[in-house]
Design a protein around this nucleic acid. Structure first.
Length: 581
DNA sequence: GCCGTTTTCGGCCCGACTGTTTTCAGTCG
């Protein structure tokens, strides 16, 4: 056995195989199979190295051949098939395939005809004007490739951005577009609408009978750097921030099919179109065509389209190309939590530690957002960087909270809490006699996240065994596109959390989104219950709640499983029974 | 290479846009 391999490494291997096979010119369905397998692993809530080879085959899209390859790779750290493949097709061609406009055919072409195997030699050939002589190439493409190479070097082609950031950008664009008089309807689409944790580009769908006018307007917006492409119904622009925005304009009569198509994901769309075909209908973004009669059916909303196809409406967050169509056909989709279900926020910070606003302001912020209760959870003192509170501070804060509650006369309830630091051995930073006086206790790991799996797992399990801990904050500790989460054995963590009824947090901070949806789904399967918390360090950050709700919906969570959807009475009753058990 | 409410073999979504063409291939989603 070599060092452990993560799912990420298996996904990367399968993706590389797919691209190499494309360059090789293999059967395209074989290529799709590798890509599908990689995608399905990406949304898996369990580490592959915890599964036996037979169990790998239970993952959709993974059959005998790919299971055997994954198994070999996990066991030996190598894959003979891959080594043979790269002996035939140079691995360095993968870097060419990452360039915009360079797909497998063109990569093969420059390699086979000009012997080009890396970015430098491609750039040289383009500068010398050698590429334009290849079949299907020309001067325009040569220019595009050169600028693509340059942008890649300058890292100007932005990678995926966090969901929260994408919503900020989209919000402005939607507002601007909404003012255009020819815009009849407008909606976010794509991964943004599906609330995926990171977003590659922003997709917007517009209904209008004058597409060209709308698209010209889009290209003229002040945030736009340049127009990547513009056709009759579709335009893509790059913003000054580097982010790409795709706008598709459709006739309002096609709104239902168009929004369905443009929301995806790709795999869900493939499945829904196959599902429609089995029923004799061909689905496109324009309409649903009856294959035998040629009759076209139009849907002005998504709901009626799904219902026509003998399904119930599938919320965008569940359109992941998993088992959602099968569940929808049986009416077994979960009843997903919605923003209106949220009654309180169970993690926030004030000026008592590293928050920007006073306790009173945070309470006002929560009331303004229609909440009924707010748990104050300043950091405990071990987290020096955050100016954490001592037990004496907590006592004084408690008095402030009592006074606030007295003045609020029951219209809102401020709850006493803390985000208590978990030390490296799993011991808490505050005494039990302090913790037991609080309404709810949130425990969090902020340090030594890089401990090996056994050690960090034992550490978290010890926290879950502590009878005073009610909530485990941001369980993995990851920071999106910045820091990987802890490598804990989540199967054991979730089993223990379910046993002890410690609530798993879905932290809605755009930097975190933790638990991630794939792990939250797994936790749900293990019987866990949850909270969705903003972790607000200022009043405006209380608006992060919708991001957390999006992640929860992707995980298939209902309000009954989320403690801050409960009434205050039920929440406090729950706490009481925990203390007495 | 995967998969099964037409199938264990023969299928495996559908269209926009660009640059190269002179009717289309390649890329992208």
């Amino acid at each position: 056995m070599t060092g452990r391999l993560t799912n990420r490494e298996v996904i990367s291997l399968l993706e590389k195989i797919a691209i190499l096979l494309e360059i090789k010119g293999e059967n395209r369905f074989k290529i799709i199979a590798y890509k599908r397998a990689a995608e399905n692993i990406a949304s898996l809530g369990i580490e592959l190295d915890q599964l036996r080879e037979e169990e790998l085959r239970d993952i959709p899209g993974i059959g005998e051949a790919i299971a055997a390859k994954i198994h070999e790779f996990l066991e030996t750290g190598k894959l003979e098939y891959y080594e043979k493949l790269t002996a035939e097709i140079p691995e360095s061609l993968l870097s060419l395939a990452e360039l915009p406009e360079m797909g497998p055919k063109r990569v093969r072409s420059v390699w086979a005809d000009l012997g080009i195997t890396n970015l430098q030699s491609l750039e040289e050939a383009a500068r010398k004007g050698l590429l334009r002589h290849l079949e299907g190439f020309g001067p325009r493409l040569e220019d595009k490739l050169l600028s693509g190479i340059e942008k890649t070097r300058e890292k100007k082609i932005s990678g995926r951005i966090p969901l929260g950031k994408a919503w900020e950008v989209a919000h402005d664009l939607l507002a601007a577009l909404g003012k255009h008089e020819k815009v009849l309807k407008i909606s976010p689409a794509g991964s943004l609408r599906r609330m995926q944790e990171t977003i590659g580009d922003i997709d917007l769908l517009v209904a209008s009978s004058e597409p060209s006018s709308v698209m010209t307007f889009v290209a003229s917006l002040p945030q736009v750097e340049d127009t990547i492409l513009q056709g009759k119904t579709k335009t893509s622009v790059r913003l000054k921030s580097g982010l790409q925005v795709d706008v598709r304009v459709m006739d309002p009569s096609s709104w239902g099919t168009a929004l369905q198509y443009f929301t995806g994901n790709q795999e869900h769309n493939v499945q829904i179109r196959e599902w429609a075909l089995k029923r004799g209908f061909s689905l496109s973004e324009y309409s649903l065509g009856n294959v035998s009669t040629g009759e076209e059916l139009f849907f002005n909303n998504e709901d009626s389209l799904y219902v026509f196809l003998d399904l119930v409406y599938i919320p965008p967050e569940l359109r992941q190309g998993r088992d959602e169509i099968e569940l929808a056909s049986k009416g077994k989709l979960p009843d997903l939590v919605v923003m209106d279900d949220i009654k309180g926020d169970l993690q926030c910070h004030t000026q008592w530690s590293d928050g920007r606003n006073s306790l009173g302001d945070m309470v006002k912020g929560a009331m303004k957002r229609g909440l009924e209760y707010l748990l104050i959870t300043d950091h405990s003192h071990a987290l020096g960087i955050a100016g954490g509170v001592s037990s004496a501070d907590l006592e004084n804060q408690g008095k402030e909270i009592d006074e606030l509650n007295a003045s609020l006369k029951g219209s809102f309830r401020v709850l006493k809490g803390v985000e208590v630091e978990v030390l490296s051995d799993g011991i808490l930073d505050l005494d039990e006699k302090v913790l037991k006086n609080l309404d709810l206790v949130v425990a969090a790991v902020h340090s030594s996240l890089r401990q090996d799996r056994e050690r960090i797992t034992e550490r978290i399990l010890r926290v879950l065994d502590n009878p005073f801990v009610d909530i485990l904050a941001h369980p993995t500790g990851r920071l999106l596109s910045n820091r990987e989460g802890a490598d804990a054995d989540w199967e054991r963590v979730f089993a223990k959390a379910a046993e002890k009824d410690v609530l798993m947090e879905i932290n809605a901070s755009p930097k975190r989104l933790d638990l991630p949806d794939r792990l939250a789904r797994r936790a749900l399967e293990k019987g866990c219950r949850f909270v969705i918390s903003t972790d607000a360090h200022a009043t405006d950050q209380m608006d992060f709640m919708h991001l957390g709700v999006g992640i929860a919906r992707r995980a298939g969570l209902s309000s009954s499983e989320i403690a801050n959807c409960w009434s205050l009475e039920r929440l406090m009753e729950w706490k009481k029974t925990r203390l007495s058990s």
